[in-house]
Design a protein around this nucleic acid. Sequence first.
DNA 1: ACCTATTTGTCCGTATGTATG
DNA 2: CCATACATACGGACAAATAGG
Lengths: 118, 118
Amino acid sequence: MLWKIDPAGDEPLYAQLVAQVHLAVARGDLAAGDRLPAARELAGSLDLNVHTVLKAYQRLRDEGLIELRRGRGAVVTARGGAGLPPVEKALAALVRAARAANLSAETTAVLVREAMNG
Amino acid sequence: MLWKIDPAGDEPLYAQLVAQVHLAVARGDLAAGDRLPAARELAGSLDLNVHTVLKAYQRLRDEGLIELRRGRGAVVTARGGAGLPPVEKALAALVRAARAANLSAETTAVLVREAMNG
DNA sequence: ACCTATTTGTCCGTATGTATG
DNA sequence: CCATACATACGGACAAATAGG
């Protein structure tokens, strides 16, 4: 993986990690479906606190770059390779917007069904 | 203010607080420009940790509902509860993509629900 | 069906930094 | 200069979902 964090930099540590993952995906070092190291494991190797890594991971999830699930870890979504089907892209965008607006899964699903039928 | 948090509820504490603020804005109890209590102060009165309140505040900031500045506190933004346009936009985009892909309303709704729960 | 290990999620506590007024 | 109040980071603890034996 070989990511580097500078504890003395002006950028926050979690932001540095977010940027590193972005870079890795952009350069192809990380592809869709690839799994990121477990938060505690990465924290250990980068000499960071678990929470700092988790904050970065959750930020990346909010951006739609990775998917986080308990017991499974962090997996890169299908947005790194730029050839994604339009439906997936629209789906991911809607999920982000709906989450930001505090809508439940059920509410969002109903909205979609009505929008499709109407 | 009189917000209520249930420590035994299924919803996370910070999510409950986020919902309460949403409600307050929706009901007009909080208007644009109004200042929310300082995180530590609110944490004290709700018997929560400061981090829990701050997490809620930062979530609300990400949604665009409030503005956070050091030394100044949390202030409701001008466009207050008007956080729906992003959802509408994403919804329309998804409908277009789904129709183009020949997906039914039901299928699309199920996809959304799964994506939200995932 | 059960159990165990893994891994993220939430919450609390503490400390220090930094922009605002 | 000083008080206020969010921002970041560290630490520990337990809960909950997942995967695999």
